[in-house]
């Protein structure tokens, strides 16, 4: 386990480098994680995905599948890959303060 200093706060991370506690998350934390992942600015479209993922996680205990995400959030597959290049599922989950998604799809 690792603890990092973010914007003057100490945050606990899990073995994958994702936020350990769901409730430690806020928009500032998301911005910082996004920068670490090479996304300099989170647009309105990023937020749609992030907020949808957090809602799903709260309800089901896991991040949604990409299929579910694209069907229900209104962000389609192409756009999702453009918003979160090189691994949308993992990146979006990290920025949203969730653990690495467990599903295969």
């Amino acid at each position: 386990m690792e603890t990092i200093d973010f914007i003057g706060r100490k945050l606990e991370l899990d073995a994958d480098g994702h936020l350990k506690n769901f409730n430690d998350w806020d928009k500032e934390v998301a911005q910082e994680f996004a920068k670490l992942e090479g996304i300099n600015e989170l647009t309105e479209r990023h937020w749609i995905v992030i907020e949808y993922m957090r809602k799903e996680f709260k309800e089901n205990g896991d991040a949604p599948s990409i299929r579910k995400l694209t069907k229900e959030s209104g962000v389609d597959t192409k756009e999702l890959y453009a918003l979160f290049p090189k691994g949308p599922a993992k990146k979006a989950a990290k920025i949203a303060g969730l653990p690495k998604p467990k599903g295969c799809i």
Binding site: I66, Y81, G87, P88, A89, C104, I105
Partner: peptide, 11 residues
């Protein structure tokens, strides 16, 4: 198909 999709999901 699952492996191809899974690969893209991982970047």
């Amino acid at each position: 198909l699952i492996m191809a999709n899974g690969a893209r999901m991982e970047g």
